[in-house]
Structures are given as structure tokens and as C-alpha cells.
Amino acid sequence: MERITYTATIERIVEHDVDTRSLFLRLPAKTAFTFTPGQFISVAIPLPNENRVRPYTIASSPGDDGPLEIVLDLVPGGAGSEYLFARTVGDRLNFTGPFGLFTLERPPDIETIFAAEATAIAPIRPMLHRALAQPSTVPLKLFHAARTRKELLYADEFQATARRYANFSYEPILAQPPAGWSGRSGTVMEHIRALFVDGDARRDRAFYLCGVGNGVIELRDLLRKAGYPRRAVQYERW
């Protein structure tokens, strides 16, 4: 018994910002690879003296015919992200997977709040796609927080989705918004607290939270302590 190692070719690279890009990974024809929205692949990072693995979330949706998309940040001094940023179109990557339990398999039947910071929108994007796969009146709300407009990845796509689906709303949040910004400002924590903790006594909502570092854990604690059931608060900390 052996874990399957997949080898994909980098077909396309899209720069979102100086330190954020998407890699589109093409698997050989007829490769069977399936995943659940929210899952990640474990990418082999061959370094001069050792082999590491680093997890990268699949930002595209299962069933998309195209290549798998991963979207990543360059982390200064980070061997894994530096290795991936040094790849060019035509290079190959080895990975195993999919892995991860931060997933959304079927359209939710209670109001669902998605909250992510910057690149950590990656798992939420295919989750939303799945959540909207069937006509529904269940409210779905996306809070996407970032420092700059460029970090609000896929903003056009989410805006278009919000126009198309009456039950979906898109709430971009900028920490320090420029003049003329019509979205929210501040932190995701402030807005979640005001709307869903202090805002009413309802606790029949589900949450999907993703971000780098401890902010996600603080958000989890806020919601669980406020009385949301443990399983209603799903999260992934990068």
C-alpha cells in the first residue's frame, strides 16, 4: 500500500500582487483526482539537504474541468513559498492528497457566515461554489478582510456572484480603506462581533473561518463562548 503521488505541470501563473500569485496545476490526462471544497494538497518541497512538504489549499472547485489552482503568498525567509515562487511555467510539482477536514460538502441549511483574511480565502472560494450549487434562500455571507484592495482576491467574481444570487452577500473589509471605499473598514473580528455576537441572540448560524496565525483562534473562541455550538464553528489556521 502506498500513497499516490501526483505530478502536475504548472500550466499558468497569475500574479495578483508582488507577493501573491496563483499557480494552475495540470494533471496528466485521465488522472483521477477528486477532492471536497476546502481541502488542500501536500506539495513536496525538495530543498538541497532535505525534503519538506507544505500544504496548499485548492482554490478551484471540484468538477472544474481546468487545472487545479493554488494561490499563495511569498513568506519572507520561508523555504516552501520561496521554492514555489521560483517555479516557472512548465515546471513540475509533486504532491499527495487531498487532505483536510475544513470542508463544506453540501449546501448549508442554516445561515452560514464565511470569514477569511487575504489569501486564506482559498478554501472558502470552492466552498461557496458548492454552497450555491442548488437554488436556496438560506443566507450566505462572505466577509473578506485585507490590508489592500489587491489582497481582496477574486473581488470581481464575488461581486458578480452576489448580483446573481439573492441569498449571497459579499462584504469586503479593508483595514485602512482609501478615500471612496464603499465597503466595511476595520477588522473581521469587529464586524463578526457586532453582527453575530452582540447584534442578536440568535445562535442558529454556522461559521467557516480561515486565516494565518492566531486571529482565527480568537474568532473561534469569541463565537463558541458566545453560545454557538462547537461544531457550528469550523476553522482552519494557516
Binding site: 501536500s42 512538504v53 500544504p55 494557516w238
Partner: peptide, 9 residues
């Protein structure tokens, strides 16, 4: 350690 030791897998 598919998630790189990050408590995610």
C-alpha cells in the same frame, strides 16, 4: 505530516 505539522490533517 501532510499539513506540515500545523494541526490541519
Amino acid at each position: 505530516h501532510a499539513c506540515g505539522g500545523n494541526c490541519a490533517c
